[in-house]
Every structure is written in structure tokens, then in C-alpha cells.
Write a protein that binds this DNA or RNA. Structure first.
Length: 153
DNA sequence: TAGGCCATCTGGTCCT
DNA sequence: AGGACCAGATGGCCTA
């Protein structure tokens, strides 16, 4: 049993060495913006943007929505936003802020899952913190490696 | 200074 | 109707 553990340990170390993920040590503190507070930063007035929650056939002038909401900066709508949307959902500022808070919490839990995954994949202690994409790719390789190990023992 | 990474905002779509 | 999920855009931080 111990022999097998040692075998796996040394194999793991070789595996990690092969991953070519060794870089200079540095602490990768949490991003400065990582404060998940529930206090929205935008305007707080409960401005009703529209009477109905869905607008009628909105075509081109969709850029007005963020401006109407008093957004401090301009956000374009992304590629999918150009798709022919029959009916557009109009939400209040309060609803938008609540959605932002939910989204922050969702991303926070996603990052927690990434952190948990980082702890599962083997890396050297002094190695710099893996990025999300590095974590996913290393996990894929690691799982494949372990499956091969199981098949060959 | 360019590029990578990340947090955040936002609107569209899907689902309950 | 509203929440979850998704993806694009943007700006800030950090490193080579």
C-alpha cells in the first residue's frame, strides 16, 4: 500500500514536471475587485423604464437602453445581441441592479469551484496560481493520466 | 507597452 | 414574471 502510494507520488511528481507549468514563484493575491458586496454601485432610483416588462418589436435603437439607465459607461450588446429579437425585455434599474448582484454571486461561486479544482490538480507549492483555463486543461490531462494509470495496473 | 487574466456590466435566451 | 445561464464588451491590474 505504501509502496503504491510512493509510486503514485513519484509518478505524480513526474507528471507535474512534464506539465511544464513551473514558473517563478509569486503570490497571486485575490483580485482587488473581488469584493462581492450586495450594494450596487449604480443609481438607486427606482426609475421605471417602461410600463410593460416587454417592449414591442424593438429593432435598431437598442443602445438607448443602457443610456436610459444612467450607466456610467457604454456597453455594447455583443454579437448575439444583433440577432433578430422579436420582443425585448425591459427591466427597471432596480431589477438590473438585482440581476448584477446575482451575476456577481454566480461568478463568485464559479470561482469557488475553480479554486476547489485547483486544489485537486497537482502542482508545485511554489508554482504561481493557475489561471482558469490552465486549471481546466491541467485537470483534463490529469484525469486522462489517472485513467491510464488505472488501466495499466 | 503589449498581452493575458479577471471582475463586472449588460442584454438575450432558456427554464421554472 | 423572474431567475439562471451565457457570451460580448470594457476597463483595470500585472507581468514579460
Amino acid at each position: 500500500m505504501e509502496m503504491q502510494d510512493r509510486f503514485i507520488d513519484s509518478t505524480l511528481m513526474n507528471f507535474v514536471s512534464d506539465m511544464n507549468l513551473m514558473e517563478c514563484p509569486q503570490k497571486y493575491a485575490l483580485a482587488p475587485k473581488q469584493q462581492v458586496d450586495d450594494t450596487p454601485s449604480g443609481p438607486t432610483s427606482q426609475t421605471r423604464l417602461n410600463d410593460s416588462s416587454w417592449s414591442q418589436e424593438v429593432e435598431d435603437d437598442v443602445r438607448t437602453a443602457p443610456l436610459m439607465m444612467g450607466s456610467p459607461r457604454y456597453y455594447s450588446r455583443g454579437a448575439r445581441g444583433n440577432a433578430k429579437s422579436k420582443r425585448r425585455r425591459i427591466i427597471t434599474v432596480v431589477q438590473r441592479q438585482a440581476a448584477n448582484v446575482r451575476e456577481r454571486k454566480r461568478m463568485f461561486s464559479l470561482n469557488e469551484a475553480f479554486d476547489e479544482l485547483r486544489r485537486k490538480v497537482p502542482t508545485f507549492a511554489y508554482e504561481k496560481r493557475l489561471s482558469r483555463i490552465e486549471t481546466l486543461r491541467l485537470a483534463i490531462v490529469y484525469i486522462s493520466f489517472m485513467m491510464d494509470l488505472l488501466e495499466n495496473t
